Amino acid sequence: MADDRQTIPTTSISRAAAVALVEAVREAARGIGFGVAVAVTDPGGHLRAFERTDDVPFLPAEVAVDKAWTAVAFRTPTHVWNDYVADPRIAPLQHHPRVVAVGGGYPVVLDGEVIGGLGVSGGTYAQDQEAAEAALAALGFTVPA
């Protein structure tokens, strides 16, 4: 039997919450006026839910997944990465093939705990951020600055 020193409890976004988040992003993107690719990952960066509207090409689909991965991997929104990579001590991280330093990626935070990642792509970085923030807020998740 494992003791407390060998394991840690983890919490992950449920499938139902991931799908609801995808739908909330789609609704927000429709209201803003752009086609969208949206990805939701678990805390380990593994895809939990994904959707791409018919009018979105394949590249934003990949970018959405990588935005979600970046946000959950570093537990910070992707739009702050532009400032991070300006620091020569951190700049080498920008060469990691999955790090995306463009707005639209957010950790999914509930009660102070990161339970997943959200990536939105298809509009401008500002539109992607707006749709992500609206969806997170609509479902009661924390909207990180």
Rank of each mutant, 00 (worst) to 15 (best):
Arg75Val: 06
Tyr125Cys: 15
Ala24Met: 01
Ala134Asp: 09
Ser12Asn: 11
Val25Thr: 06
Val143Asp: 05
His95Asp: 15
Ala17Pro: 00
Val25His: 07
His96Trp: 12
Tyr125Val: 15
Leu21Lys: 05
Arg26Tyr: 06
Met1Trp: 10
Ile13Thr: 07
Gly44Asn: 13
Ala101Pro: 05
Gly103Asp: 08
Leu136His: 10
Ala135Val: 10
Ala131His: 09
Phe50Asp: 08
His79Tyr: 11
Val100Tyr: 05
Phe58Ser: 13
Glu62Phe: 10
Val102Arg: 10
Thr41Tyr: 03
Ala18Trp: 03
Gly112Trp: 08
Ala71Thr: 08
Ala132His: 02
Asp83Ala: 14
Ala101Cys: 12
Ala86Val: 11
Val25Gln: 02
Thr142Lys: 10
Ala61Gly: 15
Phe58Asn: 12
Leu110Tyr: 14
Ala37Tyr: 01
Phe34Asp: 00
Gly119Thr: 04
Arg30Gly: 05
Leu47Tyr: 00
Arg30Ser: 09
Leu21Tyr: 03
Val80Phe: 11
Val19Lys: 13
Trp81Lys: 09
Gly112Gln: 05
Asp66Met: 12
Ala68Lys: 10
Trp81Gly: 04
Phe58Val: 15
Ala39Phe: 02
Asp83Gly: 14
Gly44Pro: 04
Tyr125Lys: 15
Thr142Cys: 04
Gly119Cys: 03
Thr124Leu: 01
Thr11Trp: 11
Gly33Lys: 06
Arg52Asn: 07
Asp83Met: 07
Lys67Phe: 00
Val65Glu: 10
Val40Met: 00
Ala29Ile: 04
Arg98Leu: 15
Gln127Gly: 01
Phe58Arg: 14
Ala86Gln: 15
Ala29Ser: 00
Val25Leu: 08
Pro43Arg: 03
Thr76Lys: 14
Ala132Ile: 02
Thr7Gln: 12
Trp69Asn: 01
Asp4Trp: 13
Ala138Ser: 14
Asp55Cys: 07
Glu62Thr: 14
Gly45Gln: 07
Pro57Glu: 14
Leu93Gln: 01
Ala24Pro: 00
Pro60Trp: 11
Glu23Val: 06
Asp4Ala: 15
His96Gly: 01
Trp81Cys: 04
Ala61Ile: 05
Arg75Asp: 08
Gly112Pro: 04
His96Lys: 11
Asp87Gly: 08
Asp111Thr: 01
Tyr84Phe: 13
Val36Ile: 02
Asp111Cys: 00
Ala18His: 02
Ile13Glu: 02
Pro9Ser: 15
Ala138Leu: 06
Ala101Lys: 10
Leu47Ala: 05
Leu136Val: 08
Leu93Pro: 03
Tyr106Asp: 03
Arg98Tyr: 13
Gly140Arg: 09
Thr11Gln: 14
Pro92Thr: 05
Ala64Met: 08
Val143Pro: 00
Gln94Arg: 15
Phe58Gln: 13
Ala37Lys: 02
Gly104Asn: 02
Arg15Pro: 06
Gly122Ala: 04
Gly104Trp: 08
Thr7Tyr: 14
Ala61Asn: 04
Val99Tyr: 02
Ala132Gly: 11
Val85Pro: 03
Asp54Cys: 00
Asp83Trp: 07
Asp128Lys: 08
Val38Ser: 05
Glu133Ser: 11
Arg75Met: 10
Ala91Glu: 14
Glu113His: 07
Pro92Met: 02
Pro9Gly: 12
Ile8Thr: 15
Lys67Arg: 11
Gly112Met: 05
Leu136Gly: 08
Pro144Met: 11
Tyr106Glu: 03
Asp54Val: 05
Asp54Asn: 12
Val72Pro: 06
Val100Lys: 13
Glu113Cys: 09
Glu62Gly: 13
Ile115Gln: 08
Ala132Arg: 01
Ile90Glu: 02
